[in-house]
Design a protein around this nucleic acid. Structure first.
Lengths: 205, 205
DNA sequence: TTACAAACCAAGCGCTTGCTTGGTAGTCTT
DNA sequence: AAGACTACCAAGCAAGCGCTTGGTTTGTAA
């Protein structure tokens, strides 16, 4: 296991997300993996307990119920990846570069270490009750605003032709779906894939 | 409820899929709707029974178990939409037109009447056991071949620049994701959306 | 060393799940 | 009219579910 990024470390120090080597952190990591592989509903609290080496009942010492674990998985990954995107944007100047940075970031988050949690965020939405959906939706809004701003700038500069909102939604699907087919072991690197996705989004010039 | 298409009617006559007004047909339609809205796992056999107006136990007179219902939903929709795509392809000449026809077809299948079943096909994959996954995968292979052939032709003709396999996968995600945001009531028509998707896939010329 | 809280275990409760069983009403065939 | 078959119901079983409970261990700090 490699070092967490500076951004990641900062969020841990601020107490916003749990350290990966803490009890809660390990639980959330295991939960993300299981929820991705089997789905939230098919994953039992006994599965979760076994994955972290405790009794199923002991989980409820850390979280009030199973759904709270799902919510925590989603919450931590959206907070982390929002910050990672802000950091990546800060290093780009041109609108086109910003879009590429966002694409790279999102592919990394989906295909890299937080991939399990990101997949859960995207596909296990319905398993949260209304109240928790609203909470996550609010956090997602901040994340999506970064995208809309960058795409709107790109459109103003002429690199993008179609409506930013529609483009973002098409990209959301295209990028999140990669989790179902992309393999690290293959010939295609994430950066190459990001370039391909960029070539769809913006006009050649 | 409007008339089924000629292709649809043909498959019913051949006994390949169930008529929408038959007992099994109504069960599969209700199952598709429930599976889409609540997910397969969260949908109980009691929900299914109530939706078609019979006791939950009576379902097992038509299908041996709950998973067989999910499999039938997936099987019928992939068979139908494969035939619909073949019919649409037959009416197109230019590679570019063929790609547009496929995009329109897939959007129709995802956003139109078979939308619930298509969504289930895409998102409830994991709920099938290995054996049934293989069965559906085989049927999906025929469907995907139509896409790969059309995109390969389009690349040969110079309208497409990136690898057909990668392009297809990016399009799969972009198009299937529309189910999560597209609304019939809005200003954007499905044909307009298809044009936008086409503009991402192929070079302007 | 003692005091106390956090982290955990062993057991199991109440409920829901997919599915089975034995039987019945209606329809079709001969 | 008799027999067979299809489509269903009413009742309930065994297993698995999320979660609770009462008590024990472990880490920390005075």
């Amino acid at each position: 296991m490699n070092q967490p990024s500076p951004t990641h470390q900062r969020l841990i120090d601020q107490g916003i997300i749990n350290a990966p080597d803490s009890a809660k952190g390990r639980l959330l990591q295991a939960a993300a993996t299981l929820f991705k592989e089997k789905g939230y509903e098919r994953t039992t609290v006994r599965d979760l307990g076994k994955a972290v080496g405790i009794q199923s009942g002991s989980l409820f010492h850390h979280y009030p119920n199973k759904e709270a674990i799902l919510r925590a998985v989603m919450e931590e990954t959206i907070l982390l990846n929002t910050e990672l995107m802000k950091a990546a944007l800060a290093e780009s100047q041109q609108p086109k570069d910003k879009v590429l940075a966002l694409i790279q970031c999102e592919l990394q988050s989906v295909l890299g270490e937080t991939g399990a949690a990101m997949t859960v965020l995207v596909y296990e939405w319905r398993s949260l009750k209304e109240e928790n959906q609203q909470h996550i939706l609010k956090l997602r809004g901040i994340y999506e605003d970064l995208w809309i701003n960058a795409l709107t700038e790109a459109k103003a500069s002429g690199s993008v032709v179609i409506d930013p909102f529609v483009l973002r939604r098409l990209l959301t699907g295209a990028l999140s779906w990669t989790v179902n087919w992309y393999r690290q072991e293959g010939d295609l690197t994430i950066d190459q894939l990001a370039q391909m996705a960029l070539s769809l989004a913006i006009k050649p010039s």
